[in-house]
Design a protein around this nucleic acid. Structure first.
Lengths: 347, 347
DNA sequence: CTGTTAGCGCGTTCAC
DNA sequence: GTGAACGCGCTAACAG
């Protein structure tokens, strides 16, 4: 009662000084105690503890941040959170950050480079200590570097620039192993479908496809998802042409897979009639018939490494920029043809 | 060059005072200018603008927050971001917040009430101006209220307490219209499947199911998803029993739907053999065969209202707590039996 | 319209 | 082991 009266007259939040007064000690003593139970006598500790509880004191992170020049906050800027990969990555990033005493400020740029710049500026104003960035399509690495001068950044999922740490999937390899797997099933005419945006991962996955095809002495075919209608036509043409139609499809990303499935569904082309592998896992991959074979990203590992590396930079490590690429895992289900006679009727 | 020398000796970030000096004006003038182009002469404005550009000045929101007692930050605490609903809601919340000059601090509690308390405390320490909370299962409303004393909160998706604003789906109604639709197709034995957690929305959706069934003079049957194995057995028993088996299923949530689909798939029970409606939309609802009929939430509207209401509270509105519930929309596809003879062979 | 100054809540010297 | 005082960058009062 008394303490409440002493400092809460205006119903304002209790401050460190309120606690100090209530406990009958100096401010810095409370400060030391709050930050880590070091160098405080037992008796005083008890009194401080009591005062904190009585006042409902919560340290003011803003004030601390201003004082020490560190907000203990990480900025996370992603295109969106509407797929398993980003969703899970976000979860891991947030938890890893929290484990280290950091909170996460989340922004999305919707694949829009201009909006991305604004979001980055916003993060700078918030004085985040570091940023996990999934660069938008058509990002100018130079513009980002200029804006972020002085703030540690790690590029996630998509590399950005030689001077910036990046943590990504081994994209070329992903394209390669998927293609090789399909080739292993005896298919001769494979089609790779890529997305609308010019994204580094898509390009390298495509390169993996091309190399694997060339190594096997086959001609790589590819189409690009511009609008759904176009995709629908292109796809049908490839699948239903008279001479040596395509019998196996490699989808280069999550959203492309969704689009392809939609086309097949709309056109009533049974998934069973072709071999299919998608890069990026889907939540419902094993709910389809046949179950979808995918290349799964080691999402948690990627996210963890991103946070790790970012922390190193925040601590001030001046080492050379790193460029980590982790291999994806071929998750074999049925759509590739491994179970049943998927797509082999015409192979 | 000169300005750089004047204030950037130590390569530290430019401050408002640096800008003031460089522009040859007072600090408060810069402050006024930065905050909104009010009351500054043209000449001075130009000089300030130049100085800001030359120094790469970015206002320090921590300092501003400390000074004005407002961080311009919203806390968002959700169970996770792994479904369309929360993902989309998050997007809208972030954009709406941004539109009003707020940034979003994102935390997840994984449906764990204890973790939730820690996260809330963390948000308080960050001095967020308001919180959008999706309360975890088994949340003690009292504990939350005690902790959040003084911080505006709006409960999202799940109500929390009479004294706290809530924005939710009209859950009872959702259960009712789904059930009535199924009944309208002539089904007599319906089964509602609910989730593991004791969640307000699930309970009311179930109530809607029960009432609709009773109004129709039918006996409601229900099972609860505890572990997948149990669900698998219960489901099969209901679907395959000799006397009057269940011919239509109502799933009460996103995760329940996923589980049911998995069971059906594993047991090779064709989705086509039963009528099905799921509350909550799925990204791949129209990729399944037959396409899934669902009750879709007006996600964006809900999110928008949540932010709106939160802003009102932040502005200081002392009005009575509101309890908004928006009706869901029955999105008719095929699995309910509206196209083709889904599930009616045994109805 | 503009400049000066006090202090938001905290951490960090430095004396004691 | 402890307390007093200064300043982090900014805004809100004032005075001019």
């Amino acid at each position: 009662m008394l303490v409440r009266f002493l400092c809460m007259q205006e119903n304002k939040r209790a401050t460190l000084i309120d606690v100090a007064n209530a406990a009958g000690v100096g401010a810095s003593t409370v400060s030391r105690y709050v930050r880590g139970g070091k160098s405080v006598s037992q008796r005083v500790a008890k009194r401080i503890e009591a005062a904190i509880a009585a006042l409902g004191y919560e340290p003011n992170t803003l004030a601390r941040g201003l004082r020490v020049g560190r907000s203990q906050t990480l900025g996370v800027l992603v295109p969106h959170v509407n797929n398993v990969f980003f969703g899970n990555a976000l979860r891991t990033i947030q938890m890893e950050a929290q484990r280290r005493g950091f909170t996460v400020m989340l922004l999305m740029h919707q694949e829009d480079a201009k909006l991305q710049q604004e979001q980055l500026a916003s993060l700078k104003r918030s004085r985040v200590d570091g940023i996990v960035l999934v660069p938008a399509a058509n990002t100018s690495a130079q513009a980002v570097r200029a804006l972020l001068e002085g703030t540690p950044v790690v590029a996630f999922d998509r590399p950005l620039h030689k001077t910036i740490d990046s943590i990504t999937l081994e994209n070329l390899n992903a394209g390669k192993i998927a293609t090789e797997h399909l080739l292993g099933h005896g298919h001769r005419h494979l089609l790779a479908v890529t997305g609308d945006y010019e994204l580094h991962p898509l390009e390298w996955r495509m390169k993996g496809f091309q190399r694997a095809m060339e190594s096997a002495g086959k001609t790589p075919e590819e189409i690009c998802l511009r609008d759904p209608e176009q995709l629908s036509q292109d796809l049908c043409k490839a699948l239903q042409r008279g001479r040596s139609p395509v019998t196996a499809i490699l989808s280069l990303s999550y959203s492309v897979t969704i689009s392809i499935l939609k086309v097949l569904h709309d056109r009533k082309i049974p998934l069973r009639s072709i071999a299919f592998i998608g890069i990026d896992d889907l939540e419902f991959a094993s709910l389809l018939d046949p179950e979808l074979t995918t290349i799964t990203q080691p999402t948690n590992q990627l996210a963890q490494m991103a946070v790790d590396q970012l922390m190193k930079r925040i601590e001030g490590s001046e080492e050379h920029p790193i460029r980590v690429a982790i291999p994806g895992k071929l998750t074999v289900r049925s759509s590739c043809g491994c179970r049943g006679q998927v797509g082999m009727s015409r192979a």
